[in-house]
């Protein structure tokens, strides 16, 4: 079973569609990881929450659009829980996310009532049955999310969230309620993630309780790939944040193209997560390795 260019090219559109939908999740993760400087592991489950809500509601006869809105709302709630665990109860950032993530596993099972829900013979907004349409609809969603996020983070509240992530001490000295900002940002982040989960469930035609496992790694990979490709434009652009968001969607598409290629080349599906983790570990450590090579070792690695 060797690599066949023909069959790879045939699977490219599917990979791009998948990349765009997962890219929406990556944009959600940008809010926590890049803006807030907070490693939020809630996403691994809130992605599935979005899928579960969407799949269950569609099965119950609701329209795909309404189902997606409910998925978004469920994600907002999930993020709020993580935020409150961290700010009101002072639980460390990573642990807050892990706790919500674990709790959501049960919640997701409750929502679906069983480990998976399939969406057969129903009207869907986006589906792999029609990939060109999926790319178009996914692209529309991605552009809407970019526009909405760009506008939101330009508002007074958005600016105060950015200040909170950049310099919490300064933010408080400027009268910003940093706890509120963190909760809101985590809420938005998981809301977008759940929206992405809702689209994924529709695209693949089912939602499974294990959907989203390792989602944070896919998101990080997408963000980093995107930043690497668009670094210069992100640095200099007047609409730098919009470019950064777009780059994550682009990065996610590249990620899925690579995954498709390695699977075609014979990588065992079961080894995929090991492969993804290794790639992200290498990419995350690149700045440090480069610095070491130059003889400038920094000890200020982010601890959170």
């Amino acid at each position: 079973m060797g690599f066949s260019l023909g069959s790879f090219l045939r699977s490219c559109p599917g990979a791009i569609a998948q990349g765009i939908i997962y890219g929406i999740m990556a944009m959600g993760v940008i809010v926590s990881y890049r803006i807030l400087n907070y490693s939020d592991l809630t996403v691994d489950s809130s992605l599935c929450t979005g899928g579960a809500v969407t799949a269950t509601l569609i099965t119950a006869g609701f329209s795909p659009g309404v189902s997606l809105l409910c998925a978004l709302a469920a994600g907002l709630v999930a993020g709020t829980v993580t935020g409150l665990l961290h700010t009101a109860l002072k639980i460390p950032a990573i642990l807050s996310g892990i706790l919500t993530q674990l709790a959501l596993y049960s919640v997701n099972l409750r929502i679906m009532g069983k480990p998976n829900v399939t969406l057969l013979n129903t009207e869907l907004l986006i589906s792999l049955r029609n990939i060109p349409r999926a790319i178009l609809i996914g692209g529309c969603f991605a552009i809407s999310v970019i526009a909405a996020m760009y506008l939101f983070f330009g508002t007074e509240i958005g600016c105060s969230i950015r200040a909170t992530g950049s310099n919490e001490k300064m933010a408080r000295a400027q009268g910003i309620n940093t706890s509120f900002g963190k909760v809101l940002a985590l809420s938005v982040s998981n809301g977008i993630t759940a929206l992405s989960g809702g689209l994924i469930a529709q695209y693949q035609g089912y939602c499974d309780i294990n959907m989203g496992r390792g989602a944070i790694v896919i998101a990080l990979a997408s963000i980093i790939i995107g930043e690497a490709v668009f670094s210069r434009i992100i640095e200099t652009s007047k609409i730098s944040f919009a470019v950064r968001l777009f780059s994550a969607v682009f990065g996610a598409s590249i990620y899925y193209l690579v995954i498709t290629a390695v699977l075609q080349a014979g990588l065992n599906t079961g080894d995929l997560k090991l492969f993804s983790a290794a790639v992200v570990a290498i990419v995350l450590s690149l700045p440090h390795l480069k610095a070491m090579k130059k003889g400038k070792v920094r000890n200020d690695a982010k601890s959170e």
Binding site: C159, S160, A163, S166, Q174, G175
Partner: peptide, 23 residues
């Protein structure tokens, strides 16, 4: 100052100190 933000954004943040921050 918030080092990831523009100079004018920092000033705008300070300018809103004590005011309600909305949309």
């Amino acid at each position: 100052t918030a080092s990831d933000m523009w100079l004018e954004e920092n000033l705008a943040l300070a300018y809103r100190r004590g005011k309600r921050r909305g949309l």
